[in-house]
Write a protein that binds this DNA or RNA. Structure first.
Length: 394
RNA sequence: GCUGGGUUCGCAUAGCGGCAAUUGCAUCUGGCUGUAGACCAGAUGUCCGAAAGGACUUCGGGGGUUCGAGUCCCUCACCCAGCA
């Protein structure tokens, strides 16, 4: 890791592999474990940077594929890079477009998400919008149908132009339904692409994460972890899983085969139980669309005892039962929304499709996860992580 | 009073002899983990069934024509428009 970046572990939990750390970047330091909200198109949907500051967000994620299509990385650069463009002073992270290799490809084709759910009926299968070759991936733009090629080299070049502090190597995300042979083939392609990503990465003010893959298979996951550890200063855990249990095992295999001192990022995971489990296994940062997407769909997070594993710590505020509810969204939450508005009001906003509905729910949900991370950091320092985790394990 | 138009499942609509009946909204139920997502899928006359499916009752009221009527005819009620 060059001198513009530094990752320090400040405190290790006594009973788990959780740690409190500090990841220093050119745009400021990040206290870890941290939650990173997704601002795919240079906007954390419905929230301003001022909101994010109020909430305590430390770092924001943007997306290479989306920003390349619109407005184009050159425009972002003209405004001074992703942070300046969106009016955000803190650190930023861009995903490589690797997820869109999956979400606009095999995910459509097979009607799957990256985490297979038990008793899950498959989604509707649709034609894929991209085509994968050894060179890279040709996308048919979901905006206008035009054709765009993303390769490891172009993904890195675009990310360098966008100018986030933390960037990710270009990867091929496997389907959770792939056989062992298919998964192995995909992992090998990812590894070749990661080496090409590394080779083309020139800028020293960006920290490049290597991504681990290997689906649900132990030996592939270990191979992937060792490969990423050998070639990169920072590790992003990616890929598909057959279940939550499998995902936690995968994290264990991966963390166990990478350098403890390197920062570890969990790509695209953010349910409460996942965060507790994966922090406890030694992962430092998480990004996820859940708080903003769920927020827009009318789900707001609630803490124990109302929130629990069964309801996945959320209620559907648009349901009739909340129409006359004068409580805040979450009784234990100190966010601006919970201090100012009732459930009944937010319920009304969703029924009326008022724009404020999406904003209030997103604000609360991002606050909820950001605050949970803060509590987790404090608990690790106090040696009380297990007690905190037990409170959230009902 | 005359002439014309209309009355369909909460609201709004389609339907022009084979219909438990179109579509939109609304409502309900599911789903969403590196954002093709302010979205998507299903349900919404009643009853039986896990389902396939079956039974019953429906298109303002009444009557008629027809194997068969939301659809055609007569009549009544109400609404709208134009003319008195």
């Amino acid at each position: 890791m060059n001198k513009l970046f530094d990752f320090k572990i400040l405190k290790k939990d006594a009973k788990t592999k959780a740690r409190v750390g500090e990841l220093r970047t050119p745009h400021g330091a990040i206290d870890t474990p941290a939650f990173i909200p997704c601002g795919t198109k240079a906007s954390v949907k419905s929230l301003t940077p001022q909101d994010l500051n109020e909430i305590g967000v430390q770092v924001v994620l943007g997306n290479t594929y989306h920003l390349h299509l619109r407005p184009g990385e050159k425009i972002v650069k003209e405004f001074g890079g992703l942070g300046k463009f969106m009016g955000w002073n803190g650190p930023t992270l861009t995903d490589s477009g690797g997820f869109q290799v999956f979400s606009l490809g095999v995910a459509l084709e097979q009607g799957v998400a990256k985490l297979l759910q038990e008793n899950d009926e498959d989604l509707k299968q649709k034609p894929r919008l991209n085509k994968i070759t050894e060179e890279g991936v040709t996308f048919q733009s979901h905006l206008d149908g035009s054709s765009h090629i993303l390769t490891p080299e172009s993904s890195i070049s675009i990310q360098e132009t966008i100018g986030a502090d933390l960037i990710v190597g270009f990867d091929d995300l496997e389907s959770p339904k792939y056989s062992y042979a298919e998964t192995k083939k995909s992992l090998e392609r990812t590894n070749r692409w990661l080496l090409r990503s590394k080779k083309s990465h020139r800028k020293s003010d960006q920290l490049l994460y290597g991504v681990t893959h290997g689906g649900r298979f132990k030996d592939l996951r270990i191979e992937s972890a060792k490969f990423a550890d050998k070639n990169f200063d920072a590790i992003a855990l990616g890929g598909a899983h057959s279940s939550k249990e499998n995902m936690y095992e995968v994290v264990k295999w991966t963390v166990g085969n990478t350098d403890d001192l390197k920062p570890k990022h969990m790509l695209g995971i953010g349910e409460v139980d996942d965060i507790f489990n994966i922090v406890s296994l030694g992962v430092d940062t998480f990004d996820c669309v859940i708080p903003t997407r769920m927020g827009r769909m009318g789900f707001v997070f609630v803490s124990p005892p109302e929130g629990n594993l069964l309801n996945r710590f959320r209620i559907d505020i648009s349901k009739e039962i909340f129409a006359k509810d004068k409580n805040p969204l979450d009784k234990n939450c100190q966010c601006l929304v919970c201090r100012s508005f009732t459930r009944g009001y937010v319920h009304h906003l969703f029924r009326a499709r008022e724009l404020l509905a999406y904003r209030l729910a997103s604000y609360h949900n991002v606050y909820f996860l950001t605050d949970l991370m803060k509590k987790i950091r404090e608990a690790i320092i106090d040696n009380s992580l297990l007690q905190l985790r037990n409170k959230w394990s009902i």
